[in-house]
């Protein structure tokens, strides 16, 4: 803040500008940004350049890798792994929609109806984050175990027959199927949906609801015309915070899925660590990033909000 206190003397509109405005303050905002920018350069820009370089290299571990501008890696990677890429988008989208359907009522409840329980419920939402991501995902293996009560109940109710027909599960089990992976994704990213929704909803002035009531709006109309539009920033940022990490996730597919549920994150991991095909892994990472960037840009444009939260 010391830089700030040395800011130029106040420029009052009334004072005639006798000398050209002092330019000392011109760089101040950039100096303030410097730590952040440095961080960005060292931990984002440089790795990105390195990764971009890797993606156009060819070679092997023995011979070393050289940049040969081999852009075909991108087309080959897309040609080989488009099913996993498409699957990632589908699973992440499904998980995001489920998160929204589950998270909105809960966030609404916390914001408007919870009263003195509000803090307790918030803690309950965040509490699972005190254990590791891995443990939380592994817990689902116990919950959805073949002989467990959940799968037993679903079987008795013939729910699994329907999901099997839809291709979401296989036989009379849930684990190692697409449904299990989407469940895991939904569960793991739910708080990222609830928190922004809650902040958005909590800001809505209660008097607006009263006003809507005074104007003879039914509760459903109030929700449709007042609450939901005002919570849009929360919806948009919540869906982004859920969709982006979910589409790159590989832990859920690894632990809860099978061979036909592998996502793009799994492919990148395998290519990088197992096959040692660093260029393909780097190219796939870029493709994933580009795809997410495109989708997110389109989504933000369409949703017509630039203010997130």
């Amino acid at each position: 803040m010391s830089t700030l206190t040395e800011a130029p003397p106040p420029l009052t509109p009334a004072a005639p500008a006798k000398k050209p405005p002092r330019r000392r303050g011109r760089w101040t905002p950039y100096w303030l940004l410097l730590p952040g920018l440095l961080w960005l350069v060292v931990f984002f820009a440089l790795p990105m350049i390195y990764q971009a370089s890797t993606s156009v290299q060819t070679g092997s571990l023995e011979q070393g890798y050289k940049v040969t501008w081999h852009f075909a890696t991108y087309w080959n990677a897309l040609g080989d792994y488009w099913p996993q890429a498409l699957r990632s988008v589908l699973y992440a989208a499904a998980a995001t929609v489920l998160c929204l359907l589950l998270g909105y009522p809960l966030a609404y409840l916390i914001a408007f109806r919870a009263g003195r329980w509000r803090n307790l419920i918030m803690i309950l939402v965040i509490a699972p984050f005190f254990t590791s991501f891995l443990i939380r995902t592994l817990a689902w293996k116990t919950i959805l175990a073949d002989g467990g009560p959940v799968v037993g109940a679903l079987n008795t109710l013939h729910v699994l027959d329907v999901t099997d027909w839809l291709g979401w599960t296989a036989g009379d089990r849930v684990l190692a199927t697409p449904l299990a992976v989407v469940c895991g994704l939904t569960y793991n990213f739910l708080p990222f949906m609830i928190l922004p929704l809650y902040t958005s909803l909590e800001r809505i002035d209660g008097r607006l609801h009263e006003a809507a009531g005074d104007l003879y709006a039914k509760p459903s109309t109030t929700f449709r015309k007042v609450t939901f539009p005002l919570s849009m920033p929360g919806v948009v940022s919540g869906t982004l915070l859920t969709f982006i990490p979910a589409s790159g996730d590989y832990v859920n597919a690894e632990l809860l899925g099978s061979t036909d549920t592998r996502m793009i994150g799994n492919v990148i991991q395998t290519q990088f660590l197992r096959v040692l095909d660093y260029p393909t892994a780097a190219a796939l990472s870029f493709i994933l990033m580009a795809a997410i960037l495109l989708m997110v840009t389109f989504y933000i444009r369409r949703s017509g909000t630039e203010d997130l939260v």
Partner: peptide, 18 residues
Amino acid sequence: GALALGGLGSLSACGIPA
């Protein structure tokens, strides 16, 4: 800044040695 810093030249400089 990133482009100027990285430049296309540096792209080719960061191969992995044999």
